[in-house]
Amino acid sequence: MIRLQNIYKSFKGIEVLEDISLDISTGECVVLSGVSGSGKSTLLSIIGSFMKPTSGDVSVNNTDILNLNDFRLSEFRKDILGFITQSFHLFETLNVRENILPALLLSQLSQEEIYSKISELTKLVDMEHKLDTQVALLSGGEKQRCIIARTLVNNPKIILCDEPTANLDKENTLVFIEIIHALKKQGKTIVIATHDPLIKELDFVDKIIYMKDGRIE
């Protein structure tokens, strides 16, 4: 479960988030909706521990993630969290396999297990045939699926998506939605920050939180 209490965040004197309190139950699919600049990406970063709020508390499964040391935080990011962004943060000059590999390098898996895992996940997102293709040569949709495969490698409990369909066409957006639906069925907690109306209208979305000027409406 994710709990945010009285979150404030300011950048150089400008309040970006004001008094955000939010509870997200395990297995829920929550959409953070709002225009650009409403603070949804910032909120997502705070939930994902990539940013610290100016004040307030964030806890995940009753663990205060703001006071974790780097070791524990890294474990949280590796084992609990999965992150999908709009900008496809991939190593462009490496191929698909080489992009997924870093997510598994720190695990205790053997070489065979690592490659088997990569194969399994890329199959799941229909990218197995592109394992040796350089990421720079992939389409938007393929890059997105590569990110998803990498995100799922350690079987995260929480998946955060920041404008995941911003750079996708309709067909690829539908593929993305299918994958997210499958993950919801597996009991994963999903938080999507988006202004894509297609996502907001999905029937498996449990909650839509509207944000404006850093506040929840």
């Binding site: 890294s74 949280f76 990011r77 992150f83 943060h89 870093p102 997510a103 350690n154």
Partner: peptide, 12 residues
């Protein structure tokens, strides 16, 4: 940043 998001520690 990519590595840190994937759960790599600063020391890693």
């Amino acid at each position: 940043a990519i590595l840190r998001v994937l759960g790599w520690k600063i020391s890693d």
